[in-house]
């Protein structure tokens, strides 16, 4: 009976036309809702970016990039020390976190069923969820106190700890996606296991791993809380990582909470600088993904 439904409805042609029109309306309505929801989510993001750019663009200038902060009362001044500090602190945290993260990622992708891997994975998940301020406190206890004072190095350690989960996860996931046959191809040629991993599997997954690394950098580049008790901040230009050092998120925090109009302007400028850096990192990761894409 069901199959004949169309034929039985009296004026079938008009009926079919109506039904199709109804479906088309539903389709349009559905599409409208999706686009509307997407706009609803995107517009605030764009507004934030627009506002920061509007506020920051006036502060941004060559002087802003190369000058040191001026004392209260004097106009002008820049964030050169914070920019150098941010880059230096990140550089040291990368040197620590990238090799360790990739090595752990390789281990987890290989040892899928071992007990150690299970606990390691659990630890990584928990580490990912630890609030950044708590990491700051831990590094304060473990590094700042034993070293006898605030230092850029301790800030780097805090950021490295925060970068680790993302690097480990992206390495593990990337390597797991590489077909097992790739490894067998190398082993069957009489290539020892460690060379197979280092020379075949790692290069094959390189673009995915690097993308993870870059995204983890852009995640921690704006972290303020873990730097408060570690790198602490400094009004001077310094490249000595055993001394307190300024960084962009720290001066944003300090200047934005100050009562001076001029400092607020600097905070906006620093915010914009930070966002530009993150944007650049994201563009780089997109380029790496496209250019170094490995086709199996």
């Amino acid at each position: 009976m069901k199959a004949n439904h169309w034929k039985e409805t009296g004026n079938s042609k008009a009926e079919i036309g109506r039904q199709i029109a109804l479906r088309n309306r539903k389709n349009k309505w559905f599409k409208g809702v999706i686009i509307g929801a997407t706009l609803l989510a995107t517009v605030p993001l764009l507004l934030i970016l627009f506002y920061i750019f509007k506020q920051g663009i006036s502060a941004l200038s060559w002087d802003f990039l190369v000058n040191l902060p001026k004392p209260v009362g004097e106009t002008g001044g820049g964030v050169a020390n914070a920019l150098v500090g941010s880059i230096l602190i990140l550089l040291v945290s990368c040197i620590v976190a990238i090799p360790v993260g990739i090595i752990i990622g390789i281990y987890l992708s290989e040892a899928t069923s071992s007990k150690l891997a299970y606990y390691c994975r659990l630890a990584v998940d928990v580490l990912q969820g630890i609030p950044s301020i708590v990491i700051g406190i831990i590094i304060y206890e473990w590094v700042v106190r034993p070293m006898g004072g605030f230092s850029a190095f301790s800030g780097s350690m805090a950021l490295a700890l925060m970068m680790l989960p993302a690097i480990i996860k992206s390495t593990e996931e990337t390597l797991k996606l590489i077909p097992r046959t790739m490894k067998e191809a190398a082993l069957a040629l009489g290539v020892p296991y460690y060379k197979t991993m280092l020379k075949v599997i790692l290069p094959t997954g390189l673009s995915g791993i690097l993308t993870g690394v870059i995204l983890s950098i852009s995640r921690v580049i704006g972290e303020t809380a873990p730097l408060l008790f570690t790198a602490f901040g400094s009004p001077f230009m310094t490249t000595d990582i055993s001394k307190p050092m300024s960084s962009l998120p720290l001066i944003i925090f300090n200047y934005a909470t100050s009562p001076y109009e001029d400092w607020h302007r600097l905070a906006w400028g620093a915010s914009m600088l930070l966002i530009l850096m993150i944007l650049m990192l994201n563009i780089i990761s997109k380029i790496i993904q496209r250019k170094w894409k490995v086709q199996f």
């Binding site: 077909p179 046959t181 067998e184 191809a185 075949v200 290069p203 094959t204 490995v294």
Partner: peptide
């Protein structure tokens, strides 16, 4: 030689 061709993609 394996069932599926597996040249090294890099």
């Amino acid at each position: 030689v394996f069932q599926r061709p597996n040249p090294f993609p890099t």
